[in-house]
Simulated scan of single mutants.
Amino acid sequence: MSLTAPRAVIWHNMPVPLTTPHQIVLTTDERAALVALTRPTAQARMLLRTRIVLAAAEGGSNASIARDLGICEDTVRKWRRRHALRRLGGLADAPRPGRPRRFSPVARAQVTAIACELPALRGMPLSRWSSSELACETIEAGVVDDISPSTVRRWLAADAIKPWQYRSWIAPRAPDFASRAAVVLDLYARVFDGQPLGPGDYVLCADEKTSIQARCRCHPSLPPGRARMMRVEHEYQRGGALAYLAAWDVHRGKVFGRCEPTTGIAPFARLVEQVMTLEPYASAARVFWIVDNGSSHRGQTAIGRMRNRWPTARIVHTPVHASWLNQCEIYFSIVQRKVITPNDFNELADVENRLIAFQDLYNLAARPFNWRYTKTDLDILLTRIAAHESGVSAVAE
């Protein structure tokens, strides 16, 4: 025991020689570059690789470096070898090509083409495609041997194609659509009959929001709480309905409205009187009323009735099925979101009070809508629709 113990102590204190063939010797510039990479804002993986190389340059073994940095010894061995063979460039990530592609570009294009077809054209009793149904149809058509719905969904997402969604639209059918729409768009741009509007000319958009119900919920609505959305009882009792008539000043950004039991010629006439007896409209040179073709103000009869009662007022009709040209619809969409939804009123008086109160509140900070749709945009739309219809007709023939 007395002979072997000193030898063990001597052997333990002897430096362990480096067994790796990749010795790290840094130049002054390399060391400065590595030290610069140890800044706190550096990427974590680059910071670790840099510390490995700096420790190896100080003579540390793979085992000691792994122990000091709390990592695997294989990791130290890897980055020591990479730096020894490629110097600083070896610390960057290697190219990662990934696994070979399973599907050819032609197969992907064919899947996209199927997604752009109506299911009925392929004999499927469906109204819209889903990713799983497209995957099954692709396999059935022999495009690919096997494909997952997630792959189909990823391909379509890259092309912004969503065949499971749809949007309703109406093609302009009125023969005078372009001419009528051009008059409305000119008025929005402060032009009428090719002449700019004067300081005494005003443009109003009027419309009716019908059948606003008072739905008294069977249980009181609960306000939002911690980790809980607002709760509204599904069942309700009907408390009647009313109509909200409004006129929107396009260029001044003001709204005038009233509630009526129903729509009709008389309620619309009361809205017109409410506005035309106010300044600056009472003393205006011309007041253009842009309205749709509803029964309250339809045709030449309504135009004559308006001019007889208010000589400075002039009705301008939007084309049929073109309510999107009426800026009052924008205001009504705000009312729907902020006032009516969710519908929770005890009685009709509550509905009317809130509508009128919101109207006053809105006028405090109202400003004209940023309307950017011009006659140029209208011409582009009509040209595109005409080209589409001619293409459909050619396919049908």
Rank of each mutant, 00 (worst) to 15 (best):
H234V: 11
V255M: 06
D207K: 03
R226Y: 14
H234C: 07
Q213M: 08
L271W: 03
L222M: 13
I212H: 08
E233V: 10
R217V: 14
E233Y: 12
P220S: 15
A266G: 01
P224N: 07
I265L: 00
R215E: 14
R252T: 08
K254Q: 07
E208W: 09
H251P: 07
C218W: 12
E208V: 14
R228L: 10
Y236E: 05
V203H: 02
C218N: 15
V232D: 07
R215G: 08
R238F: 09
T210G: 10
Q213I: 07
E233W: 10
T262M: 06
F256Y: 11
R258S: 07
T262D: 08
V232M: 05
S221E: 14
G253W: 01
G253C: 04
V203Y: 01
R226V: 13
P220T: 15
L222K: 10
E235W: 11
C259K: 03
A269L: 05
C205N: 06
D249N: 08
G253I: 01
R252N: 05
F256M: 06
G240S: 08
R228I: 06
R215S: 15
G257Q: 04
Y244D: 07
M229T: 14
L271D: 00
A246F: 00
V203P: 04
S211C: 11
R231G: 11
L271Y: 02
A227M: 10
L222P: 00
C259R: 08
V272W: 05
Y244T: 04
A243K: 02
L271M: 05
L222C: 13
A246M: 03
G264W: 00
Q213L: 09
D249I: 01
R231C: 08
G253A: 06
R228E: 12
F268C: 00
E208G: 06
V255Y: 04
R226G: 12
A214Y: 08
Y244M: 06
G239W: 03
T263G: 03
V255Q: 04
A243E: 05
A241T: 15
V232P: 03
V272A: 13
E260P: 00
T210R: 15
H251K: 07
G225R: 09
A227E: 14
E233D: 15
Q237D: 10
G253K: 02
S221L: 06
D207L: 02
S211H: 11
M229W: 09
C216E: 15
G264T: 03
R215I: 12
V255T: 07
H251N: 05
R228C: 11
F256S: 03
A227W: 11
C218S: 11
K254N: 00
A269V: 01
R258G: 02
R217C: 10
Y202V: 05
P261D: 13
E233R: 10
G264L: 00
C205R: 01
A269G: 07
C216A: 15
D207C: 03
S221F: 06
Q213H: 09
L242F: 02
A227R: 15
M230E: 14
R270K: 12
V272R: 12
T210N: 15
S221G: 14
L271K: 02
A214M: 12
A243N: 11
K254F: 06
E235K: 13
G253D: 04
E235G: 10
Y236L: 10
T262C: 09
V272M: 14
M230Q: 14
R226H: 15
G253S: 02
L222G: 01
